[in-house]
């Protein structure tokens, strides 16, 4: 095995091969994050259940019952929970990936491994959270007697994959920027909060009437809309909208990947 160390490096196929070689480390980092998180909180794994559940309850009380938010004829709790499930996966992935390099600063400056491992591992953890939170959805569907159509269940992994691309792409850009500019992380929670209100999580896109196409610019709109159609029925899946979302997320992922690769080698110098 010959390694050549040069001042400049180009993105090549070797990067992907190297990432594959380090796949065990990816799993170890994800495993560490999970383990540590559940050791540090008193209620352990149930935290992953509580958090989305209570958010759903609060939103249902305030937006559903009190503000009478329309929900396309679907009971509001289950309507908002489908949105929240996907949104929280995306938002938590994005924010944790963005800070992944800084929280592992001491490792980045002392050991070599493909840096891409760190943001990727944090998102792996969010998959686990997603599946735990999905248990609540099953409960809600039983309670409200919704049976998802079979095709709908098949499409869920695809939706999750597209959200993953979006979160990883955005996360890679933000992680690189975060290394250079240390104040970005303070602005990030605010930014994500705003983003949630620009995404039809707590309201249906139909609320915007004939301006609802503006919401479609946001790739998460297509994903959440498709998830609702698939799981809860109602309007059929808008494949065109979903296709646009998918392409947009892939572009975001590519941009994030290239930017990250370009800046990655200097992380240890400036972090």
């Amino acid at each position: 095995m010959t390694t050549i160390i040069r001042p400049k490096k180009i993105i090549s196929f070797a990067d992907f091969r190297e990432f594959w070689q380090y796949r065990e480390l990816l799993l170890f980092f994800a495993w560490r994050d999970l383990k540590v998180r559940y050791k540090q909180t008193a209620i352990g794994v149930s935290w992953a259940l509580f958090q989305p559940f209570f958010t759903m309850v609060v939103f249902s009380v305030f937006f559903g019952s009190l503000a009478k938010m329309p929900s396309d004829g679907i009971p509001y709790p289950i309507f908002v929970f489908v949105g929240l499930l996907i949104w929280q996966f995306f938002a938590n992935s994005l924010s944790d990936a963005a800070s992944s390099l800084i929280t592992n600063q001491s490792i980045v400056t002392k050991v070599y491994f493909p840096r891409l491992i760190l943001p990727a591992a944090t998102i792996l953890v969010k998959f686990v959270d997603f599946f735990i939170a999905a248990i609540i959805l099953v409960g809600l569907m039983v309670y409200y007697q919704y049976t998802p159509n079979f095709l709908g269940l098949l499409i869920l992994p695809l939706l999750l994959l597209i959200s993953f691309f979006a979160a990883l792409g955005g996360g890679l850009i933000l992680a690189s920027v975060n290394v250079k500019y240390r104040d970005v992380r303070y602005a990030l929670p605010f930014f994500i909060q705003i983003l949630m209100f620009l995404t039809p999580v707590i309201y249906p896109p139909s609320i915007a009437g004939r301006y609802s196409w503006i919401l479609a610019i946001n790739p998460m709109t297509g994903i959440i809309k498709a998830a609702r159609s698939a799981l809860l029925g109602g309007a059929p899946i808008n494949w065109q909208l979903l296709g646009i979302s998918g392409v947009a997320c892939l572009i975001l992922l590519w941009v994030g990947f290239v930017y990250f690769k370009k800046t990655e080698r200097y992380f240890a110098d400036i972090i």
Binding site: T2, T3, I4, I5, R6, P7, K8, V108, V111, Y112
Partner: peptide, 23 residues
């Protein structure tokens, strides 16, 4: 040598697996 930071000039060839223990 451990590839933690790139050089500004020059080139290094390493024929083997490197384990570095900087800490």
């Amino acid at each position: 040598l451990s590839q933690i930071t790139p050089p500004t000039t020059g080139e290094i060839r390493i024929n083997g697996r490197v384990g570095s223990l900087l800490e």
